[in-house]
Design a protein around this nucleic acid. Structure first.
Lengths: 226, 226
DNA sequence: GACTACCTAGAGTATATACTCTAATAATAC
DNA sequence: GTATTATTAGAGTATATACTCTAGGTAGTC
C-alpha cells in the first residue's frame, strides 16, 4: 500500500480510537514508523488529512443513501439504510465527536458538511415519502415530514455521543458497533406512531432486535464487582 | 465581586463565545487583567474551573426540572420546562460542544454528568407521565415513554450543534437564543402524534410560535449579496 | 551511467499552553 | 503595632505540537 493511503488509514484509526484532538501528526507518523517529514511530504497539514477522510465518509454515505426512484420501498430497504448509516457513523466515528471544532478550523469542511447534512435530510425525507407510498407509514404533509426527518437526523448523529457520555468508563475504549446500532431502536421509536396497521407489528418486531440489552438509562446500578 | 467569582464568570463567557478548547487560562487571566499566578491561586487547574461551572449548570437545570408531584401538569408548565431547559443550554452552551473531551479529561465530571443525564431523563419521563395524567397526551407504556424521553433528550442536546453546523459562517458568532429555542419546535414535533384531540390544536399553535423563521434546512440558497 | 521524479529520514523550530515559584502587597486578627 | 493570612504580580518553565528544511536514497528511463 502507498504511504499516502497508509497515512489516511492510520489517521482514521487513531482518530477513531483516541479522538482527533488527542492525535498529533507526530503520533500518526510514529504509528506508521515513518518520519514527520515523510508525512508532510504527502499532506500539507493535518486539516488536509481530515478533509480527505471526510470526503471518503461523505462518498460512503452518499452511496448508501442513493434512493432508487423507480421501485417501491420495502422494509428491507429501510433496514438497509439504517444499518448502513450506522455502519458509516461507526467507521468514521471520530468525525462527529469533534465536529464543531473541525468545522471552525476548515471552511471547506464547513461548507461541504453543510451540504452533506442537507443531502442526508433530503434522503431521510424521501425515505419517509416512499415508505408512505408503500403503505408502511401513514402519509404526512411535507412540513411535518421535514421536521420529522430533522429529528431522525438529530437522533442518529447524537446517539453515539450519548452512548459515550452514558458510559461510566472512558469513552473511547468501550463502545461497540453493536451498541451503536441500538440507535436504530431509537430511530424506529420515532416511527411507531406513524406506522400503518398493516406493518405495525412487523416494524415493532424489527425494532425489538435492536433493543438495548444493557440498561442504558438506569445508570445508578454499577456492575457488581464481586 | 470576588476575584474567584470573576474568574468563573469570565471563563464561562469566554468558553461560550470561543469554545473551551480555544480559551487558555492565560486568556482568562488577561481578559480579567489579572496575572496567571492569581488565577492559579484561586483554582488548582483549568479542570477545576470547568467542573465548578458544570456544577452551577447542573444546579440550575435541577432547579428548573423539579416537577411538583402534588398538582396536575398544565400546558403552561410544559412550556416553562422547555423554555427553561433551552435557557440553561444557552447559558452554558460551551459545555455540550466539547462534552466528550471534557468528560475524558475529568472523571468527576464524567460521573456527575452521567447522573445528571439520568436525572434529566427521569424528569422528562415524569413530565410525559403527568401530561398523560392531565389528558394532554395519550398515556403510553413505560418502556415507550423511556425511549421517547431519550429521543427528546437527544434532540434537545443536539439541537445547538446542528444549528452551528448548519450555519454557513463560523459557529460561535452568529447564534441567538431565539434560534436556539426553535429547538422547541423540534421537541413538540415529537409529541404531535401522542396529543389528545382535546389539546391537539392548542399544542400545534404553541409549536407554531417556535417555527424556524429562516429556512434552516434549505441551505443551498445563499443570501444574495447584491 | 546519468538524469529525473518521487519518496524518506530526522533533526530542528516557532509557538502555544498549562502551570509554578518567589516575592511583594493588602487585609485581618490580636 | 505586629503577626498572620489571604491575595496578587509577573517572570519563568516544561512540555507539546504543527510544521520546516536539508540532505539523501530509490526507481525508472534513456
Amino acid at each position: 500500500m502507498k504511504t499516502r493511503d497508509k497515512i489516511l488509514l492510520a489517521s482514521l484509526e487513531l482518530f477513531n480510537e483516541q479522538g482527533e484532538r488527542n492525535v498529533t501528526t507526530n503520533h500518526i507518523a510514529a504509528n506508521l514508523a515513518i518520519s514527520p517529514g515523510n508525512l508532510y511530504y504527502h499532506f500539507r497539514n493535518k486539516s488536509d488529512i481530515i478533509y480527505e477522510i471526510f470526503q471518503e465518509y461523505e462518498k460512503l454515505v452518499d452511496f448508501y443513501l442513493d434512493i432508487p426512484e423507480n421501485r417501491p420501498m420495502t422494509l428491507a430497504d429501510m433496514t438497509f439504510y439504517l444499518e448502513s448509516v450506522f455502519d458509516g457513523l461507526w467507521s468514521y466515528r471520530f468525525f462527529h465527536r469533534d465536529l464543531e471544532y473541525l468545522l471552525d478550523r476548515d471552511p471547506r469542511l464547513r461548507k461541504d458538511y453543510r451540504e452533506f447534512t442537507n443531502r442526508c435530510l433530503a434522503s431521510i425525507s424521501l425515505i419517509f415519502e416512499k415508505l408512505a407510498d408503500s403503505g408502511i407509514i401513514e402519509p404526512q404533509p411535507e412540513s411535518l415530514r421535514a421536521a420529522m426527518s430533522l429529528n431522525v437526523w438529530l437522533v442518529i448523529t447524537n446517539w453515539m455521543a450519548f452512548l459515550k457520555t452514558a458510559h461510566a468508563e472512558q469513552a473511547s475504549a468501550c463502545l461497540t458497533l453493536r451498541e451503536l446500532k441500538q440507535g436504530i431502536y431509537q430511530v424506529l421509536t420515532l416511527e411507531i406512531p406513524y406506522l400503518t396497521p398493516a406493518y405495525r407489528e412487523q416494524v415493532l418486531e424489527l425494532r425489538e432486535k435492536y433493543r438495548p440489552t444493557m440498561p442504558e438509562q438506569e445508570g445508578e446500578q454499577e456492575a457488581p464487582v464481586n
